Computed example of a mutant assay.
Amino acid sequence: MTTKSPLLALPGAVAAEGPDEGVAAHYGDLFREQRVLADGRGFVDLSHRGVVTVTGADRLSWLHLLLTQHVEQLPPGQATEALILSPHGHIEHALYLVDDGVTTWMHVEPGTQGDLLAYLESMKFFYRVETADATGGFALVHLPAGSIVTLPDGWAVRETPYGRDVFVPREDLEAFAAQAGPPVGVLAYEALRIEAHRPRLGLETDHRTIPHELGWLETAVHLHKGCYRGQETVARVHNLGRPPRRLVFLHLDGSEVRLPGHGTPLRIAGEGAEGRVVGTVTSSARHWELGPIALAVVKRNTPEEATLVAGDTAATQETVVAP
């Protein structure tokens, strides 16, 4: 069920579609909103994202057994990322965590919290832990790096190089938004995510994706921790160094009116419409400085210097994950 934000009633708000349904795509000026974020001002309403909490004395040692990340001794207030993999090492969930000393807070893709909780509940066994879907009580708000907005004591916050993810009590969301600066839509947030080469579950991933393909090995996987589901695949591919696909950043031809959407096939320029497909566009955006940009997943052996064509749009590559 989609969580519709009350901030859609703010002046100029245009509702987002697709995976970000329920919050504002923009508030009337996409490029201005990107500049606001880049300047360390404003806030992004991400209240459609799922919020899950874990409490109990064993919460960190228990999560350590399930996640790709080393969290057994995670200090209070230190943000981290983690994945849950299938037995074959394919990505099932991406979690963005922080622990406050009593509770582990995490936000996840909209609508995925139910499946995540079902898995966590199935793995509780004798551990002293309690899991909860806190989406109804807490809304995620993003403050960009450099923001000087003051937060009340006691609120859970993930502080990262990209800014602060704040778990705002839903009853306080509108009051908080009123003093947090100009609102910024998710299209601006997504443009800066793509610029930063950060993958997103459900866009950069499919049912076959492994962490090595997207650069998550560096940010969400600890290679020297104990066993977790899918670890054998992670270790094998890491040691062989041959993931089947890799993430690339694309500079798109700015003369095209439409951006190539998620799933648009990529071919090598010069091979024509019947040329072999070497990958697909996963996310695209119009950036206030860089122009049209995208992330894509291509076959590992796609030449790094090759110009690609996304549908009818020419695209030059920047390597994100080396072949």
Rank of each mutant, 00 (worst) to 15 (best):
W288I: 03
S86K: 04
Q317T: 02
G291T: 08
Q231V: 09
A13F: 12
E92K: 12
R128T: 12
T316L: 06
V14N: 03
H262Y: 04
V71M: 08
A285Q: 09
G311I: 02
L252S: 00
R32A: 15
K4V: 15
S283Y: 01
I210Y: 02
I148D: 15
I84D: 04
V297A: 01
G230D: 11
A191V: 08
L187V: 05
S122M: 10
P11E: 12
P211A: 05
V168F: 09
L63D: 07
V297R: 04
R158M: 15
E318A: 14
Y127G: 07
A273C: 00
G270P: 01
T2S: 02
H142M: 12
Q73S: 14
M123R: 11
V186E: 07
H26S: 13
Q34C: 06
L117K: 07
R246G: 05
T233M: 13
V278L: 07
R164V: 11
V129Y: 02
T282K: 02
E304A: 13
F176A: 13
G136F: 13
A178T: 07
V108I: 11
P243K: 03
Y162G: 00
G42M: 08
T131P: 00
R300P: 08
G163Y: 04
T280P: 00
R41G: 15
K124W: 06
Y27W: 09
Q69K: 12
E159A: 13
A82K: 00
P11S: 13
L63K: 00
L217I: 15
P244I: 03
L214P: 03
S147D: 09
P161E: 10
A16L: 06
F31K: 00
S86Q: 05
A145Y: 03
L247H: 00
L240H: 02
H64W: 10
G50L: 02
T319G: 06
D133P: 06
A180T: 01
V14R: 08
L214H: 09
T209M: 07
V186N: 03
S284P: 00
R245E: 02
P87W: 10
